[in-house]
Every structure is written in structure tokens, then in C-alpha cells.
């Protein structure tokens, strides 16, 4: 197939074929990372702006590295260093970036829909690096890449996503991506954070992790926000661990080849036992490595369209 999108704002609008195409492209770029010279000239002369209105280290670094390996020039802008703090609108800030000939804008923003808002208004490529509780498409792509790498394919697998689904963009992008590629998805967590309405997206909702764990091929754990941020949603970390934490005892319920995934940053001892995070079933570090390849693929594909 031929890639035709200048932007990546979400997984929801991608076809299964497009998702697979990104993953296949990422496989080629992953090989680049194993070379002595980890750099290709694909985006030489292009300027990429990492525009992070919401704080992030992991995703921003990954995009920056990916861009540099593609030979793009990279600048980083955070909320505190941008004019947004002086009352400039998002649209104006982005127009300024474009007037400075930015070719690709990677946006992290606390408002759902912000990347689409920019994508509709700019000639530059807009890549969503996480918007509110909406989508985090490159995270889902790297998760799928990691699953596919270990299990050969996605179709037919049963994946549990555990934790704070309601506020999670990682969960939404993963749900869309996994379903499109033929996986079965079960969401697990407290009823306040995993309301039944999610079933209308085509997934199963469970509030009993012990029933789900023996049946899954992948368990994807989400970071649990602290009580301070979610005090109306669950009684506390202690109770969360008791009901939903992936403890050593619970891990015994897993199939031997079940993958344990986490988008990070991890709360060791909360959503996942510390030893399990580092154990043989964990692919958490592989996710990070694959994130680089997936982001190179996304920047290469979308950046190539925008420059036409």
C-alpha cells in the first residue's frame, strides 16, 4: 500500500492495513538501531518541533531520538517555554512554528482533540504524542509491534488492559488498534474507572482480575494515578493493590507465555509487583526500544507526505 496521511492524530481513523504498514515500516527502522551508525538521511533538512504542552520525558525523548536518527533538526518546546503561558492561543503558537518552517509538529497536550485541531489548520505534519484522555497512537503502535514481535501476529490473541481506563489515552488507542487487528480485549479495573459504557466500543469489561488473568495472552498494566488525583474514583492504593494489582500470587494465574506490558512510568508495587516488572514475562524495556523504531516509521511516513 501507499501511505497517504500527513498527520497521525489517532488510531481510530486508521485501517488495519495502515496499522500493519506502519509496523512493517518500523521493522525496517528497528534494524537501523542495531548498526554502528544509527542514522539514516530520510528527513535530512527537515525541522521537527517537539511541542509538549503537557510534561513528558519518555515520549519526548523517544520522538527526539527518532527524529535525530532520521537526520531531522529538532527543537523542543514545553508549556513553560512557549508563549501559551503568555496567553497566546494554540493556533497562534502553531502558526508561528509553521512560519518558522517547521515540517513536523509532535504535539503532547492535555486537551482531547488538540492534535486534530492543529492538523486541520497547518500544512505541517502533526503527530499526536498524547492528547488528554483521547489517544496516544504511537504508544499503541509500539505496543502492537512488541506483541507482534513476540507472538507472530495479533489476530486471535486475548489482551487484558488493567487500571485507570477512563482517563487513559493509552487504553483507547490500544483498544482501537487491537480490535482492528483482530484481537479480543478485556478491560479490568474498578467500576468507577472502567465503566460499562466501554463495552459499546466492542470490548469486555471485568471487575475481577483473577478471572481474567488465566485467559489472556497479554496483560497490559496502566499506571494508577495517585489518590489525590482520583480520590472520588477509588478508596486508595492499598485497596487497589488488593483488588487489581498484579502481585506475585496473581502472576501465577498467567499462562507461561503471557506477556506483561506497561507504558510507564511504573509505580513499582502498585499496579505491578517490582520483581514481575523485571521478570521473564515482562517486555517493558522492549516496548521502549520498539517505540523508537515505530516513531521513526511514523515520522518518515507522515513527514514524507507533508513535504510533497
Amino acid at each position: 500500500m501507499r501511505w497517504s496521511r500527513k498527520d497521525l492524530v489517532g488510531i481510530r481513523e486508521l485501517s488495519a492495513e495502515e496499522i500493519t504498514f506502519v509496523l512493517d515500516t518500523a521493522a525496517a527502522f528497528k534494524q537501523v538501531g542495531t548498526r554502528d551508525v544509527k542514522k539514516v538521511p530520510a528527513l535530512r533538512g527537515k525541522t521537527l518541533v517537539n511541542f509538549f504542552v503537557e510534561p513528558s520525558t519518555r515520549t519526548r525523548t523517544s520522538f527526539e531520538l527518532a527524529a535525530k536518527r532520521l537526520s531531522a533538526d529538532v527543537i523542543n518546546i514545553s508549556a513553560t517555554t512557549s508563549s501559551l503561558t503568555k496567553g497566546e492561543t494554540l493556533k497562534d503558537t502553531a502558526k508561528i512554528l509553521e512560519a518558522n518552517h517547521a515540517d513536523i509538529i509532535v504535539l503532547r497536550h492535555s486537551s482531547a482533540g488538540a492534535p486534530q485541531f492543529l492538523a486541520e489548520r497547518l500544512r505541517a505534519s502533526v503527530i499526536n504524542a498524547g492528547d488528554g484522555a483521547h489517544e496516544h497512537p504511537t504508544q499503541a503502535l509500539l505496543d502492537l509491534y512488541t506483541i507482534r514481535e513476540r507472538r507472530g501476529s495479533i489476530a486471535g490473541l486475548h489482551v487484558a488492559i488493567v487500571g485507570d481506563i477512563l482517563f487513559s489515552r493509552v487504553a483507547r488507542s490500544n483498544i482501537f488498534a487491537l480490535l482492528k487487528l483482530g484481537a479480543r480485549v478485556t478491560l479490568v479495573g474498578p467500576s468507577t474507572l472502567v465503566p460499562r459504557v466501554f463495552e459499546r466500543l466492542g470490548v469486555t469489561v471485568s471487575h475481577c482480575i483473577d478471572e481474567v488473568l488465566p485467559t489472556v495472552d497479554v496483560v497490559h498494566l496502566l499506571r494508577v494515578q495517585h489518590e489525590r488525583q482520583r480520590k472520588e474514583y477509588f478508596p486508595g492504593i492499598g485497596e487497589y493493590i488488593r483488588l487489581f494489582g498484579l502481585t506475585k500470587a496473581r502472576a501465577k494465574l498467567l499462562k507461561a507465555d503471557c506477556l506483561i506490558m506497561h507504558p510507564g512510568p511504573i509505580n513499582r508495587g502498585v499496579e505491578i509487583d517490582s520483581d514481575l516488572a523485571d521478570g521473564v514475562q515482562s517486555v517493558i524495556l522492549a516496548q521502549v526500544t520498539n517505540g523508537l523504531a515505530v516513531r521513526m516509521a511514523v515520522l518518515y511516513l507522515c513527514g514524507g507526505i507533508a513535504s510533497r
Binding site: 482531547a112 482533540g113 492528547d131 483521547h134 482517563f167 483507547r172 459504557v197 466501554f198 466500543l201
Partner: peptide, 10 residues
Amino acid sequence: EGYWSTLLGL
């Protein structure tokens, strides 16, 4: 609050 708020994360 319903299907679309759930889908869009709003």
C-alpha cells in the same frame, strides 16, 4: 456522558 465522551476521552 455516553458513547462519544467515552470514545473521545472528553
